[in-house]
Deep mutational scan, measured.
Amino acid sequence: MDVFMKGLSKAKEGVVAAAEKTKQGVAEAAGKTKEGVLYVGSKTKEGVVHGVATVAEKTKEQVTNVGGAVVTGVTAVAQKTVEGAGSIAAATGFVKKDQLGKNEEGAPQEGILEDMPVDPDNEAYEMPSEEGYQDYEPEA
């Protein structure tokens, strides 16, 4: 019985440690998101679009440190934060509304985080759909 109880105690310690790591990862992701939003706020009209992409990228980098179902929630929060940063930029006159959601080359930025393969159960990952990809044929 002692062996059984000791095993359960060790398992509990492992769960607590994993929860603490997840909590730490979420806190880091939130900190990076805040950094990115402050970065966007300090940019001029020309830099705002690039700044919004930076927020998304920093958040995406930190999301990889967070495991399990938390990833889905962090990704949703990050996307809403990026959308909010863009709205703030438009409201303050840093950028025109028609410039939001495009990178410096004018290509749409939507789907940055949505296409990231995420499995809350950590069982399997699927690649994003290939609808947006084109076949590449090298020139002879």
Rank of each mutant, 00 (worst) to 15 (best):
M1D: 00
M1A: 00
V3D: 01
V3K: 02
M5D: 00
M5H: 00
G7T: 09
L8E: 00
S9V: 10
S9R: 10
K10G: 01
A11D: 00
A11Q: 00
K12A: 10
K12M: 15
K12G: 02
E13Q: 06
E13T: 07
K21R: 13
T22I: 11
K23A: 04
G25T: 15
A27I: 15
A27T: 03
E28G: 03
A29K: 05
A30V: 14
K32T: 02
T33Y: 15
T33E: 00
K34W: 15
G36Q: 15
V37E: 00
L38W: 06
Y39L: 11
S42A: 14
S42M: 11
K43R: 10
K43L: 14
G47F: 10
H50K: 09
H50I: 03
G51M: 15
V52C: 09
V52M: 14
V52T: 01
V52Y: 05
A53R: 05
A53S: 12
A56N: 02
A56I: 14
T59N: 01
Q62V: 03
T64K: 04
N65R: 13
G67S: 08
G67L: 14
A69E: 02
V71F: 09
V71I: 15
V74Y: 07
V74K: 01
A76C: 10
A76M: 05
A76E: 05
Q79T: 07
Q79F: 12
K80T: 04
T81Y: 12
T81H: 03
T81P: 02
V82Q: 06
V82F: 10
E83I: 11
G84M: 15
A85I: 14
I88F: 14
T92I: 04
G93V: 06
G93I: 10
K97G: 11
D98Q: 06
Q99S: 10
Q99W: 14
K102W: 14
E104G: 08
E104V: 08
E105Y: 07
P108T: 12
Q109K: 14
Q109I: 10
E110L: 13
P117Y: 10
D121S: 11
N122K: 11
Y125N: 06
Y125D: 11
E130V: 15
E130R: 05
E131I: 11
E131Y: 12
G132F: 12
Y133G: 10
D135A: 04
